[in-house]
Design a protein around this nucleic acid. Structure first.
Length: 734
DNA sequence: AGCAGCTCAATTTTT
DNA sequence: TTGAGCTGCT
């Protein structure tokens, strides 16, 4: 038996043992929220709730799996003890229902579109409608979809969103509406679901088909929802539909919502903070439990995060406290520029890696591209890092190519996939692909015959697709057929690096091996980001956007680019609510740190357009924080840091303070790509036949792809892509 | 119609 | 730096 009370504090224990009826747990950052959910899962099953009747909705699939795993371990039976618990995101849950029963108005077989599929469809609609042709200020395909999705998630009319978000697009609101209407019709006709359709589709299914709703209610007796502050209106309605609010036939309101209103950072995609604030009003008899003791960070760090929150508009008031009263005061570092910032952070990271290990060090930033300089600096210093929030594995062109065949096998009307496949045939472009697809859909045999005669490869392709559709939907055998057909196309499309891409495709087959059903495989690939297959190479420093860092923690955390226009981002300055969200974002970032926290305010930012560095203003959040919560350091022209108002520090004398290595020369503006000739080692000439790996001063480790006589190589660097480099700048590895 | 090459513009966050 | 979309050539 688990001794719950000795493992949990009183508030946690109350949350764990309150199994029935509505519960709202307000869990401050680092207050043992995950621990509470894990123990509650174990407790519920020990109380006799069958695991398969528990629904655990989390923000990512990974979070759900980790909780189930830990709960299983806790019970000493491994994960099998909780077999049958349904866990994942709202989107994944919705699709698991919709896969069997499509939403009203949709055909029987539907496939899921990701963002770029949606763009393909919208582009096609735009060109059919002939809207925006030759008008340079007409909103881009992506912009239209952004606004459409925002309008749906916030449940506002499109023109209202346009008015709020993009003043300059108001003249185009009518045209945008027209295109979005056509896009909606198209999805219904072709059986294509975008992300938002999953949520609204499930809701409309529940409302139009009481039997399905009844089945779901019967199936689940208890629902837990994590990160409730980031749910939007439709997600909240889905929860209410599932658990009911006490009406007969509902599950009796056994719902636990867990969240922290101070950590709401997804309003931009429609998250509605009042969902959590008004939860007790809407679920009668809600037990409200607050977790306020922080087990993660030292008190000096919490003093700073409390200072951030004290300026926020009051919601549920809370004051985090910790037993860990010791520890260094957070540092505010003012580098001369954004590029010296990279240098300083890099050196600091090297020190911390030695002290804590690389996996305990992270750099967080507002937007993906803010880490560019740092990536260069880390590579040059030979520090391993992994970046989160960037491009995803499933977005690589060849992966999408292969998946498109599989998707057409599941849904023959899948237009973006069909488009993608047909365009692989030499001589077929957007126009021919569109007319062939339309002819196929309309059963226009004459046109099909005419086009396939002209493009024999397309005929082979259609024959393959017919075979795939006739075969049982087992993903591995299907993929094997697909890859056989696709291989020559791959070699033609990517002459310089098809072997590497081939490896990626084989990994895809490996992932598919875990699935019996192709439809399920496709859904999971779209709805979760499969953990990066490049997990090779052991521990690494983490570079991440703050959004992707949610729920994680490290012993040492750096937050860079705390200047106006970057953090808060420029557009957030216009509206008060956006500004508030930026503040919470900073709060989330700072509460990731356990022992050491460093904030960086570069004094100037390099402007890409001109060759000019402009002075930067410190983020307003720092100014309102007050100086007592951090220690301030400035970089001098000699590259040394000195304590503001105090004496210059001797390098290395205070391990807790930023150390700037003396050995490194002062940063030079042109140093992004060093002119100094790197040593030409004798081994620098890679053997032509055996293209292995190499190392570059700036870009780091890369795969040699092709020799370009006489003296250049095409190299693929994991974080920088393909580059052509002079051989003398490369060092052969192993 | 397709394709290469060019110009210009823009850069938030994610299921 | 990258990408999207336009122009002009084949």
């Amino acid at each position: 038996m688990i001794d719950y009370q000795s493992h949990l504090n009183p508030a946690q224990w109350e949350a764990v043992r309150t199994v029935d009826g509505p519960v709202l747990v307000l869990a401050g950052a680092g207050s043992g929220k995950t621990r509470t959910i894990v123990y509650r899962l174990a407790y519920m099953t020990q109380q006799g709730v069958p695991p398969q009747r528990i629904l655990l909705l989390t923000f990512t699939r990974k979070a759900a799996q980790e909780m189930l795993h830990r709960a299983g371990q806790l019970m000493g039976h491994g994960p099998a003890a909780l077999h049958g618990v349904q866990g994942g995101t709202f989107h994944a849950f919705a699709y698991s229902v919709l896969r069997r029963t499509p939403p009203p108005g949709f055909p029987d077989r539907c496939t899921l579109m990701d963002r770029s599929d949606a763009e393909t469809v919208m582009r096609e609609i735009k060109s059919t409608a002939g809207l925006g042709k030759g008008d340079r200020s007409f909103p881009k395909t992506g912009t239209i979809l952004d606004h459409y999705s925002k309008a749906r998630n916030k449940e506002l009319p499109l023109d209202e969103v346009v008015k709020q978000e993009s003043f300059h697009l108001i003249p185009y609101a009518g045209a945008m509406q027209q295109l979005c209407d056509a896009y909606a019709v198209f999805r219904r006709e072709k059986g294509l679901l975008d992300y938002d359709d999953l949520l609204f589709g499930l809701e409309s299914l529940f409302r139009h088909d009481p039997e399905t709703l009844a089945r779901c209610r019967e199936r689940f007796s208890h629902v837990m929802v994590d990160e409730y502050q980031d749910t939007n209106l439709v997600q909240d309605r889905l929860v209410t539909l599932l658990v009911g609010t006490g009406e007969p036939g509902s599950m009796g309101g056994n719902v636990m919502a867990v969240g922290d209103d101070a950590q709401s950072i997804y309003a931009f995609r429609g998250a509605n903070i009042s969902n959590i604030l008004t939860f007790p009003d809407r679920h009668h008899g809600t037990r409200l439990i607050k977790l306020e003791q922080n087990y993660r960070s030292t008190q000096p760090i919490l003093d700073l995060t409390n200072a951030i929150l004290s300026q926020a508009q009051a919601q549920f008031r809370k004051q985090l406290f910790s037993d860990r009263t010791d520890g260094p005061v957070p540092r505010l570092v003012r580098p001369l520029s954004d590029r010296t910032q990279a240098q300083i952070v890099c050196e600091e990271i090297i020190r911390q890696c030695a002290a804590y290990g690389p996996e305990q060090v992270a750099v967080l930033f507002r937007a993906g591209y803010h880490s560019y300089h740092l990536e260069v600096a880390l590579n040059r210093a030979g520090v391993r890092f992994r970046k989160y929030g960037g491009l995803k594995y499933t977005e690589a062109a060849h992966i999408k190519d292969a998946m498109a065949y599989l998707r057409v096998a599941v849904n023959p009307a899948d237009m973006p996939s069909m488009h993608r496949i047909l365009a692989q045939v030499e001589g077929i472009g957007p126009k021919t692909a569109a007319s062939l697809f339309n002819a196929l859909m309309a059963g226009d045999a004459k046109t099909v015959a005419k086009l396939t005669k002209k493009h024999p490869q397309a005929a082979d392709m259609l024959a393959l697709l017919d075979r795939l559709r006739a075969a049982p939907p087992r993903p591995v055998p299907l993929l094997e057929q697909i890859l056989e057909f696709y291989q020559p196309i791959l070699e033609r499309l990517h002459p310089d690096d098809h072997p590497r891409r081939r490896t990626g495709l084989e990994e895809l087959v490996q992932i598919a091996a875990g699935y019996e059903d192709a439809g399920q495989f496709l859904a999971d690939l779209h709805l979760e980001n499969p953990e990066q297959p490049e997990a090779e190479g052991g521990p690494a420093v983490c570079l991440s956007t703050i959004h992707s860092a949610k729920g994680l923690e490290w012993r040492a955390v750096h937050i860079i680019d705390l200047v106006e226009d970057r953090f808060p981002s420029r557009q957030a300055l216009l509206k008060a609510e956006d500004f508030e969200e930026e503040r919470r974002l900073l709060y989330v970032a700072c509460t990731r740190a356990r022992d050491e926290l460093s904030l960086y305010v570069p004094t100037s930012i390099y402007k890409r357009g001109q060759n000019i560095s402009e002075p930067a203003t410190a983020s307003p959040f720092l100014r309102e924080m007050g100086v007592h919560v951090f220690e301030e350091w400035r970089e001098g022209y000699n590259g040394m840091l000195s304590k503001w108002g105090g004496m210059a520090r001797e390098p290395g004398s205070t391990p807790a303070a930023p150390a700037k290595a003396q050995a490194s020369p002062p940063w030079q503006p042109s140093a992004a790509v060093p002119k100094a000739p790197p040593p030409v080692s004798q081994a620098a000439q890679p053997a032509p036949g055996d293209l292995g790996w190499c190392r570059h001063k700036v870009f780091g480790r890369g795969k040699l792809v092709q020799h370009l006589p006489p003296d250049k190589y095409r190299v693929n660097f994991p974080s920088f892509g393909l580059k052509v480099i002079l051989a003398e700048y490369l060092e052969r590895e192993e």
